[in-house]
Design a protein around this nucleic acid. Structure first.
Lengths: 343, 343
DNA sequence: TTGAAAGCGCTAACAT
DNA sequence: ATGTTAGCGCTTTCAA
């Protein structure tokens, strides 16, 4: 692998000139530029990004730490974040923790400030001790999509109004006349999606509808999780007329469980999720859900991080993602009088 | 951010000793180790991975370049590859090209050998000129899951027998009695999945069944692609009794198109895919498919790459992934005499 | 067992 | 417009 000085020697100039040709071509005489470029081409030279990063004190690399790469929410977000990063001349390094706090911690510890200029942490349900440790680090860290609301003196943060999302879902079902609603709440290893549940409960209370805790199933935030939760709900609450899942992935699992029992959606049971991943519109029946606007979250988060990297000193900052929005599709319908239930 | 020399100063030793404490603690007197470790803790020192990489000529980072992060095949593969990489003390940097050859080329050019110790390139349908350019690079590059069979003097390569996968799918449908089969072939911007199609054709010819080119729809390798292709096939070939999709994602789209028209699977039309992504078993009816063994491909590919990095000089190497395997689920059934077709 | 010193490949003043 | 020089933070012989 050719180096800068080899190029310089071949072109009969010094490394400084070659470096200038690479980044400030205007400052170099055209004839010299040509000679240097010829040498670069001849040697197949490409700058060593490690050396450049060391010298400049900037790697132009940002890390994106997320809990589960196979949960489609994250790839959809990664795609947008990477595009924005690329446009702003940064590499995006995706770090999957597989829901393991140890791994997440290790990534943060090893990478932040030493390999990456900044880190975007998604939905990790970080423990407060970790937050404490992260503060005062040199490298900017942005948290996004966390399932809590206590932002006191924390890190820069992109806030998603999960509580509101749960509320919107509940209001939709209530409006359709549903009262007996099964609830499936997702959780990772670092905690459950309780804000969405609280928003849901809140809307019920507001409407004067009693909330039955026994209607809540808390399961891993996966398709099989949704499937199992639905099976349980069907046996314990055969009279429910709707299911609220805190995540589209769970709702997808629920729809399979219902399909396997010949229960029709929404004829027998209405189904609503949260997030609006691509799968939601691809399911049949297409899923009514509360959109979190994944692309917007991605753009806002990565831009905040890059802004902080390029213009430090303003931390911490809170930014709000767009409000969750109801997307009505085919999986919910109004509870008709005489709603017939399968035995 | 504390540096090595600050730690050394605080501990009253030189940087060499601190470095030794970090990587060869056996070579340092316990009392010194303790002093150094105290200094490290006190300063919150963490090694700068950029500097280390420069000094050692090794970044312990590998890049994984893939065409479409939102295609679930890749996240499933990434997850395993990252786990293996982590166990072998490497960071995995995921680079999504969004099917853009330019972006893929840029990644390879910028990263291989300058940031990453090696690159694993998935399914990019690389043009031969790119391959040529890549050969003779210092950094190892492994190609996996490419949709071609011409491996003459190329790069290290993990071979997936796509041709065989197509053949297995065809044999299954033929055995069930199907003769009029619609075919949906996926493509990215860099080419179509023609090996799978050829394997399929081959099996038909072997069985003495004529192959009708007009039954082939070539579309983007996405859920909507499968949906559209199916709609077309239904209008041009209303008498088909089965659909073969070269990818589970397309099959999923097909199943939605059929569902929207009230066409039952497999009662009216049987459906088979290739890959066996998680979605295949989660669909209803669950999808009969030809498993490519994603996890195995991931393990083999990343291990080959890391082996090459740690033990260079053996390139090129060809490794075969496990043979594709039929997974029978609920989306295919035998063509009964008097198979009734919707009008 | 520890220290001294050179160097990884590049950048960025500063000097010419 | 180009050259000189001093690092960036770490590793690694080689000496002591």
């Amino acid at each position: 692998m050719a180096t800068l000085s080899e190029v310089a020697r071949l072109a009969g100039v010094t490394t400084a000139t070659v470096s200038n040709v690479l980044r400030n071509p205007g400052k170099v005489r055209p004839a010299t530029v040509a000679r240097v470029e010829a040498a670069i081409a001849q040697l197949g030279y490409r700058p060593n990004l490690m050396a450049r990063a060391l010298a400049r004190g900037k790697s132009c690399m940002v890390a994106l730490v997320l809990p589960s790469i196979t949960n489609p929410f994250y790839p959809e977000l990664v795609r947008v974040a990477e595009r924005v990063a690329r446009q702003r001349k940064y590499f995006l390094m995706v770090c999957n923790t597989d829901e393991d706090p140890e791994i997440g911690h290790a990534y943060l510890n090893q990478i932040a400030g030493t390999l990456a200029d900044g880190v975007l942490v998604l939905h990790m349900g970080m423990a407060t001790e970790v937050i404490e440790e992260l503060r005062g680090r040199h490298a900017p860290i942005v948290l996004a999509s966390e399932e809590f609301e206590d932002f006191s003196d924390g890190l820069p943060h992109v806030i998603v109004n999960f509580r509101r999302a749960g509320q919107v879902a509940a209001e939709h079902l209530l409006k359709l006349g549903h009262r007996k609603i099964g609830v499936i709440v997702g959780r990772g290893l670092e905690g459950m999606q309780h804000l969405r549940l609280e928003g849901f409960k809140h809307a019920l209370l507001d409407a004067g509808v009693a909330f039955d805790e026994s209607c809540v199933q808390c399961v891993l935030d996966t398709v099989p999780g949704g499937y199992q939760a639905t099976s349980s709900l069907l046996s314990t609450h055969p009279d429910m007329t709707a299911i609220f899942a805190t995540n589209d992935l769970l709702a997808f699992g629920a729809s399979q469980a219902l399909a396997d029992r010949g229960i029709r959606i929404p004829g027998d049971i209405s189904l609503i999720g949260i997030t609006d991943i691509q799968l939601a519109q691809q399911m049949r029946p297409a899923l009514t859900t509360v959109a979190l606007h994944i692309q917007e979250i991605a753009k806002i988060s990565i831009n905040l991080l890059l802004d902080l990297i390029e213009n430090p000193g303003h931390q911490p900052i809170l930014v709000r993602a767009p409000e969750p929005e109801l997307v009505v599709r085919a999986s919910t319908s109004s509870l008709r009088r005489g709603h017939l239930h399968r035995g």
